[in-house]
Simulated assay, not measured.
Amino acid sequence: MNGDRIVVRGLRLWAHVGVLEQERQRGQWFELDLELAVDLALAGASDRLDDTLDYSRLIGALQQQARCIRCQTLEHYSSCMLDRVEQLFGSVPVHLELRKCNAPVPGFAGLVAVRRSRHWGF
């Protein structure tokens, strides 16, 4: 595999995910970074969208998924995201980091995240 990547960084998504019932009812902000390993040489030479992965389709699909999902854990939500990438593009190697922007933990103002990979060869 060469070093080519498509990177989507800082995708903000409003979703109904959380262990607390109020998180699932009210919803909250999440932020997503994705990295897809794909050979970009053909698109680099042809300048044709058909020769690469259309990241706008991916962003739109993840935004739609965020509007519909109801679950408790970042782990499950991130699995659903990985499934969606695979539905769109097949077995492309992908890394993601999904961050909960405002975890409801008393005295904690940072971010909580999960990092996941699928089909990555190393």
Score class of each variant (00 low, 15 high):
residue 1 M to Q: 04
residue 1 M to G: 14
residue 1 M to C: 05
residue 3 G to M: 05
residue 3 G to R: 10
residue 4 D to K: 01
residue 5 R to P: 00
residue 7 V to I: 15
residue 9 R to I: 00
residue 10 G to W: 06
residue 10 G to Y: 12
residue 13 L to E: 03
residue 13 L to T: 02
residue 16 H to M: 01
residue 16 H to N: 11
residue 16 H to W: 02
residue 17 V to E: 06
residue 17 V to N: 06
residue 18 G to T: 05
residue 18 G to Y: 01
residue 18 G to W: 01
residue 18 G to M: 02
residue 18 G to V: 07
residue 20 L to F: 15
residue 20 L to E: 11
residue 21 E to A: 14
residue 22 Q to M: 04
residue 22 Q to L: 10
residue 22 Q to R: 12
residue 24 R to Y: 04
residue 24 R to T: 06
residue 24 R to D: 01
residue 26 R to Y: 06
residue 28 Q to A: 09
residue 28 Q to G: 14
residue 29 W to C: 02
residue 30 F to K: 02
residue 30 F to E: 03
residue 32 L to F: 04
residue 33 D to I: 03
residue 34 L to T: 03
residue 34 L to S: 05
residue 36 L to M: 15
residue 38 V to Y: 15
residue 39 D to S: 12
residue 39 D to V: 05
residue 40 L to S: 07
residue 41 A to C: 09
residue 42 L to A: 14
residue 42 L to N: 00
residue 43 A to D: 01
residue 47 D to H: 09
residue 48 R to C: 07
residue 49 L to H: 10
residue 49 L to G: 03
residue 49 L to S: 05
residue 49 L to W: 14
residue 50 D to T: 12
residue 50 D to S: 14
residue 51 D to F: 03
residue 52 T to I: 09
residue 53 L to P: 13
residue 54 D to T: 04
residue 54 D to H: 15
residue 54 D to Q: 10
residue 55 Y to K: 07
residue 57 R to E: 13
residue 58 L to C: 12
residue 58 L to P: 09
residue 59 I to A: 13
residue 60 G to N: 14
residue 60 G to P: 00
residue 61 A to C: 04
residue 61 A to G: 02
residue 62 L to H: 07
residue 62 L to A: 07
residue 63 Q to E: 15
residue 64 Q to F: 04
residue 65 Q to R: 15
residue 68 C to P: 00
residue 69 I to V: 13
residue 69 I to M: 08
residue 70 R to M: 02
residue 73 T to S: 15
residue 74 L to W: 03
residue 76 H to R: 14
residue 76 H to A: 13
residue 76 H to M: 11
residue 77 Y to D: 10
residue 80 C to M: 15
residue 80 C to P: 00
residue 80 C to A: 15
residue 81 M to K: 09
residue 81 M to C: 14
residue 83 D to S: 14
residue 83 D to Y: 04
residue 84 R to P: 01
residue 85 V to H: 11
residue 86 E to L: 01
residue 87 Q to T: 10
residue 90 G to E: 12
residue 90 G to T: 12
residue 90 G to A: 08
residue 92 V to C: 08
residue 94 V to K: 10
residue 95 H to G: 06
residue 95 H to V: 00
residue 95 H to Q: 13
residue 96 L to Y: 10
residue 96 L to T: 06
residue 98 L to K: 02
residue 98 L to Q: 04
residue 100 K to A: 07
residue 101 C to M: 14
residue 101 C to N: 07
residue 101 C to W: 01
residue 101 C to A: 03
residue 102 N to S: 11
residue 104 P to W: 06
residue 105 V to A: 01
residue 107 G to L: 08
residue 108 F to I: 04
residue 109 A to L: 08
residue 109 A to H: 14
residue 110 G to N: 05
residue 110 G to K: 04
residue 110 G to P: 08
residue 111 L to V: 12
residue 111 L to M: 11
residue 112 V to A: 11
residue 112 V to C: 12
residue 114 V to E: 08
residue 114 V to R: 06
residue 116 R to Q: 15
residue 118 R to C: 09
residue 121 G to I: 07
residue 122 F to Q: 15
